[in-house]
Design a protein around this nucleic acid. Structure first.
Length: 194
DNA sequence: CAATAGATCATCT
DNA sequence: GATGATCTATTGC
């Protein structure tokens, strides 16, 4: 495995845009947490009041406060009692919106990831799902509200942008607004979840 | 293979 | 007290 190159962190202005745009543009970017890192291959956009599937649609609560805050911060919450989901806050401050990071391709620290996810047989399965990704990357609720433009958890610009074909489709695992095409993924990538 | 049940708890009604 | 932006193991064909 190569040494990890020094990559530029995405600026806050990257996140201060419409949520669907941010979700689409996050494909191919590099998610780094401590000494582990991977390439984002699948995202989903969650909007505001009109999006009944989004947590923010119910207004500000103690949990959803960060969704209404400034962009470029992490929103981490527990789902189904045992899995955490990582989101990145988009839109200007005061406007809710976030991008769920659904899957990544492991690049660095795969040994650590394997130890955290003994159930995964293949490298492609280490982070091929929202709960799997947070487990493999060691991301928990203590990172809720963390600034992703600095600190231990960052998103970076890849050194050489490999070309890929972007796919879009309905989001997964929800019942409301299930047919809105707000899911984005790298077409044909083996790490995209089913 | 595909389908399904069980695990397990913070958050909101 | 019900519900969920899931994963895994197990069962059944």
């Amino acid at each position: 495995m190569r040494a990890r190159p020094e990559l530029a962190i995405l600026p806050r202005s990257f996140y201060e845009r419409p949520t669907a745009e941010v979700a689409r543009d996050l494909l191919g970017k590099i998610l780094v947490h401590g000494s582990v890192g991977g390439r984002i291959v699948e995202t989903e956009a969650y909007l505001g009041a009109d999006d009944l599937a989004a947590h923010a649609s119910r207004g500000i609560t103690p949990r959803t406060r960060v969704l209404f805050g400034p962009p470029g911060h992490a929103y981490v919450y527990l789902i189904y009692g045992m899995y955490e989901c990582l989101n990145l806050v988009a839109e200007p401050g005061g406007v809710p919106g976030c991008v769920l990071i659904r899957a990544a391709e492991p690049l660095w620290g795969t040994g650590i990831m394997r130890r955290r996810r003994p159930a995964a047989r293949r490298v492609e399965d280490l982070a091929s799902g929202p709960g799997r990704l947070t487990r493999a990357f060691g991301i928990g609720r203590r990172l809720n509200g963390a600034d992703v433009t600095r600190g231990e958890l960052t998103v970076r610009q890849p050194a050489a942008a490999e070309p890929f074909e972007t796919g879009a489709g309905p989001r997964i695992g929800i019942r409301k607004c299930a047919d809105w095409p707000l899911r984005f993924f790298i077409r044909g990538h083996p790490c995209v979840s089913r």
